[in-house]
Every structure is written in structure tokens, then in C-alpha cells.
Design a binder for these strands. Structure first.
Lengths: 196, 196, 196, 196
DNA sequence: GGCTAAGCGAGACGGTACGTCGAGTCTTTGT
DNA sequence: ACAAAGACTCGACGTACCGTCTCGCTTAGCC
């Protein structure tokens, strides 16, 4: 069909922008990141950034999401261990970015409908699929009598970890232990009833 | 001792600033709130604002926190109903501010150590005390064999509600039902063991 | 050599700034001129102004100096008429700007070394060259036996006119007559001796 | 008539303000002088200043004029020596205040009619009276056939000195020599004709 | 090889808000 | 009623950043 006319985009520029953004984010923090700084660090003009991203926020979102692997969880054989794997993945995803970046991006998501759509499409959707997959496996195994509401279970898994890290300002070092406790608790709850 | 010299601060100005900030927040949203607009609306100079608050963010934080009643929960007679009351209070606190304000303030809290301290001192501390109080009552009643970790329980209550509202972008209309489900689930979990 | 990289400055912006500054100066006076007003009038951002001028004062200075023609005086054939031409030029230069602008700029010049340098380089230098040229012509004609000190003559011409307009608060309508009297007086003085 | 009711003004406060103003003027320069700084230095509230002076500029004007003695010139016996005495007095009056203060005050005078009136009433009037007195003496002595226009002579004496110091940015060390040259020149000019 | 279209780094542009500062006024408590 | 202290309104300052645009140039594909 329409082969793009003119000079094609240089994919190394995409990479340079994302890398520079992550570096500036790590060194300066979210609030002090400026588009000029990212452009300078990437050795790139600002126009090259705005040709790829509509706003600064979307650029950061893309850069942070880029190296976040939200892969499907391997079947570990039991609901309990599957849930533990999910909480560990969630914790990793939330704890990897530099301090303050996750809350800041969340604020941006609520300020920009386009970002909200992208957020729902990528992050929420990916995790939701993981949860659903794990629950369906448990039903198939006979561990659960019927499928609980995936949204509810998702909230029960993601919420407490987010709260531990960003709402309660608790020691991040204790987060892995808390994540395990959480997985165990949710496992028991699901075993008791099918998610009332 | 020495009562402060000079003209004392006019407490009506404090009130006018907080009220104006909430109005602008409601009408324009967090991102479009400007200090000039708040000052104009309050019939106050910008200097009067910056004499009370170090940054725009701290002004908004104070204005939003101001009319958030984080009172101690009344004793409803059982752990289950006490927990339900707490989840309702948490939901009310999170759902009251205009859309987008809570995530934005959370981002500000993580960007400014002074705000983080204030946040921990007021919001987190108040809720934590509620949770601790409720758990101690249950222990006194004999509903629980021993006191669970309040931080963990706090995370289990606050986290999922926050996730439902701000992370999963689920229907806010279903939040009250979810909050009740959550309270029931946490009640069962605590009844099973003392919060492993 | 290397032509400057990036988008070149738009010379129409320079012009718009200078014109707007002169208009606001004429309408509001020096004390009520604000950079925002100039920017708005010029249809220009404040950054465009501060990219060209370090301070508001330097912007005004440049705008006022811009349309001040300090051209070399034509040879009128005699020292007396040449001097009269110079005093008329000086009077025109001092009387053209809106009321109060000249004293205000003079104060700025004494408050900012950069402006002092610019003032010496442009206004003082230009007038000094005129005076020197006229004196040298008179020497060449044989009207003067030797070259008087140009600085002294300059002070004798410029000073009284400035004093008449801005120090003594005399009737500006009588300034042209005074300027002629002055030129005649200085002519006689130079004719008597070579400027003792 | 009306003896002032209530507590009378403390004249030591007047003195403290004037002294503090001159000190700050000397240490910080005109542009960096603030009313708060003067008040603090004088150990006085801002209200005490504004009870005495309508504006900051008028306060400075009063403080600077205060220690400027514009006394009547003694009769030195000849027009030439009288003129030299006047130029020396003018030079002293202009050179005494800290650098930049004279031009700044001149600008203020042109921005505020009340100051213009005060300026004309004190400084201009005092000098004009000196000039007139000297000229009348010369007429009485028979040195001059008739009285020249005092305003013109005033401009011829004051203007060049002002120009030397503040317009041409010439070496202030050479100002006394220039003042003498000027007095001699004006003397010759007046001797030749009665001030055409 | 020339033409067209889009890419590229650099940096100026219009705009908007920030947080600061100063002037001049007002409101305390004292004397 | 005057005094010191200091909070008040008002309004401008100069800075910073965003997202857009314009420059001269390079890099493709298509004639």
C-alpha cells in the first residue's frame, strides 16, 4: 500500500531517546526531567522527540514501559505458587523504576485520556491477563470450584503491593516478604470461596 | 512567653486560600490550577500564599487535607463491621476530591520530602491508628487470638481500594460493593490466623 | 566561517520589540512600562526579549537609541554655523524621546556598567566624533590656530542644553533659542583662544 | 493654633532615617536601596518613614539634600573669582553623593511632580540665587554693563559640570580643573557682551 | 542524476506559570 | 497619637519549560 515517502525514521534515534530518558530520570528524578535535557543527552533535536511522542509525559511513559517485561507467567503447578510468582512480577515492575517515577506516571495517566488508554491497554491488560490465566489454570486443575472475578483478584494482588511501596511509605526492603504474605493470604481466600 | 510581635496572621486568609484552592481544583482540575488563579479567587496576594506554604503543591495538599475528616471509627461491636466502616471511610477519603487530584498529590508527596513527612504524619498516621484501634478492640473482645501487624492490615485495606479507583480504572460506581467484599475478605483472613 | 547553527533570529522580532517599546514608552511613560506590556504589544514572548536584552533597561536603551540618527554633520562652511548645527542636533536628540525618558535612561546607565559601556560607545562617541570633525575643519580653514580639547568643547555644548531641559526645568519652547545663543557663545570663546 | 494632639514626633527618628538612608545609599547604591533596609538600619518601623515621606524617592531626596550646604557665596571681590567659587560649589554638590545617586534622583524628579516642585524650590532656586547675586555684584562693581539673564548663565555653569561628570563619563579627577576652565570661559564671555 | 518528500540537529519562537521581591498600607501590641 | 513589628495587597520581575517552527543539511525512493 502506502510505502512511506521521504527519509525513513532512524530507529537508533528511538532507542537513544528512550535510553536518555531513563538516564535523566535516574539522575535527576521525574520532576527535574526536561525535554531539552533528554534531547541533549540523546544527541537529538527536540523535534525528533515530538515527532514520536505527543507530550513529554508520553515519552517518559514509553521509555519506562519499554524495559518492563510483562510476560505471561509460567505454570508453576499450583495456584499458591502461581500467585506468588505474580506478586513477585508486580513488585518487580513497581520497584524497578527510579523513586517517584511510578506515582508521577500514575498522575499523568489520570491527566491525559490518551495515556489512560495506553495504560489500560498495556499495563493493566497485561497483568489482568496474567491473573485470568492463573485463575483459569486453577479451575482446570480443580483447585477452584469456579472462576472468581479477575478484576477483584487483580485489585487484591496489585493494590496492597502498591500501597506498601507508595502509600504507606513502608520499608521497601520488606516488600518481598510482604508480597509473599499477600500471595498466601489471597490463595487462602480464593480457596475458601470462589470470590464472593 | 513572648507573644509574637507585629500584625498577626489573619486566619480568614488561611481559610480563603484553602477554599479558593478547592474551588479552582474542582473547576479547572489539578493540572490547570495556578497560584495566581487561587490568589485572585481568594482575594489575596500571592505573597500571602507563599508566606504560608513553601510551594504550590504544599498549598494544594493542605487545602485538600483540610476538609478530610479522619476521625476515629466508632465501635460497631464486631471486627467485621468495624472493618467495613474503615473501608467505607477510606473509600470516601479517596473518592471525595475531584478526579485526578489524589494521584497528582501522591506524585507530589514522592517528589518532596517535606510533603512526604506531612503525609506520613497526617493521612497515614490517622488511618493507621484507626486500623490499630479496631484490631485491638477485636483482641479485647476475643475475636482475635493476638494482634496482627497493623501495617500489613492497613495495606490490605487501603491498597485494593486505591487500586480499584486509580490503578485498574474500574467503574467507580462499583467501588462501594468492592469495599464491602474487601472488608469481608480481610475479616475472614484475620479470623483464620492472626495475620501471618 | 561557521554560520550559526539552528534557527536564525527573526529580525522582524527585533523591530517589533523596539517599536512596541517606543509606543509603550510614549503612552505609559518610563515608570509604567512593563516588559509584559512590550511583549504583548509586540506580539512576542518575553523570552524573545530577554534573549536579546539582558535587562528591561537595556531593552529600552536599545529601543530609544535605535531611531536616533547621530549622523556626521555636513560642512556648513564656517565654525559658527557648524556649531549651531551641532547644538540643534543635540537638542533634537534630547528633546525627541517622551518626557522623563532621558533622565531615566541616564540613571540606568549609571547603575549598569554594561549600559555605561554601550552609552559611551554609541551616544558619547558619536557626538564626540562630530565635535572633533567640526573643530578639525575649522583648523583646516584657518579659523582656529590649533585644535581645542574635544572633550571640553563637547561638555560646553552638550551640558548647557541638558541643563536647560532637565536640570533647570526651564521652558522647553525657549530651548532652540538658547541652543543658538550657546553655539554663538562657544564660537566666540574658541575664536578668542584655542580652548585654554 | 492647633497644637498637635497625641504623642509628638520624635525628632531623633527623623535623623536616624536620614542617616540610615545615606549609609545604605553609600553601601548598596541607589538601585539596591530598599525601604525595609533603611528602616531596619535606623531601628525604625516602615510606618515611621511613610509618616514623614510620601514615597521612597522623596525620603532619599530629603536625606541627600539634608547635608548639602547651598549657602550664599561670599564676595571674593571680582566676577572671575566669584564664578570660580560657584563652579567649585556646584562641583562639590554634584560629586559628594555616592556614585549614581545624582542621576537617579534626577530621574525621580522627572517622574514625580511633587519632587519636581521640591527640586525647583530648593536646589535650582538656591543656585539661581547664587548666580543672580554674583552677577548683580559684578554690575554694581562696574565689571558688567548690564545684568545678563541669570537662567542662561546658570545653565552655562551647571550644565558643563554635570555633563563632565554624568554625561561624558570623563575622569572625575579632572573635574576641578575643568570647573576652573569653565569659570574662566564664562567670565570672558560675560565680559565681552552682557549675555546676548 | 535529479526530484521530491521526509528525516535530522540546532536553536529561536509564543506562551504560560513559577517563585521572589519590593512598595506602600493596615493592624496588632505597647507606651 | 506615635512607636516597632510584621502581615497585607498589588504588580512586576526574570527564569524555566513546553510544544512548535524554521533553518540548512542528509537520506532515502522514484523518475
Amino acid at each position: 500500500m502506502s510505502q512511506p515517502l521521504g527519509r525513513p525514521r532512524d530507529s537508533r534515534v528511538d532507542e537513544a531517546i528512550a535510553t536518555a530518558a531513563r538516564q535523566v530520570l535516574a539522575e535527576q528524578g521525574y520532576a527535574r526531567l526536561t525535554v531539552d535535557a533528554v534531547a541533549a543527552r540523546a544527541g537529538v533535536g527536540k523535534a525528533a522527540i515530538y515527532r514520536r511522542h505527543a507530550t513529554k509525559q508520553q515519552m517518559i511513559f514509553a521509555a519506562v514501559m519499554h524495559d518492563l517485561d510483562l510476560a505471561t507467567p509460567p505454570d508453576t503447578g499450583s495456584l499458591a505458587t502461581d500467585l506468588a510468582a505474580i506478586t513477585r512480577d508486580i513488585l518487580a515492575a513497581l520497584a524497578t523504576p527510579p523513586p517517584g517515577v511510578v506515582p508521577a506516571l500514575l498522575a499523568d495517566v489520570h491527566a491525559d485520556p490518551a495515556m489512560a488508554a495506553a495504560f489500560a491497554r498495556t499495563f493493566v491488560r497485561a497483568e489482568r491477563d496474567c491473573v485470568t490465566e492463573v485463575l483459569e489454570r486453577a479451575v482446570a486443575r480443580g483447585e477452584l470450584p469456579r472462576l472468581p472475578d479477575p478484576a477483584t483478584v487483580h485489585a487484591l494482588l496489585l493494590g496492597p503491593i502498591f500501597a506498601w511501596l507508595f502509600l504507606l511509605l513502608e520499608d521497601p526492603g520488606k516488600a518481598p516478604a510482604f508480597a509473599d504474605t499477600l500471595a498466601r493470604g489471597v490463595g487462602h481466600l480464593l480457596g475458601r470461596d470462589g470470590g464472593a
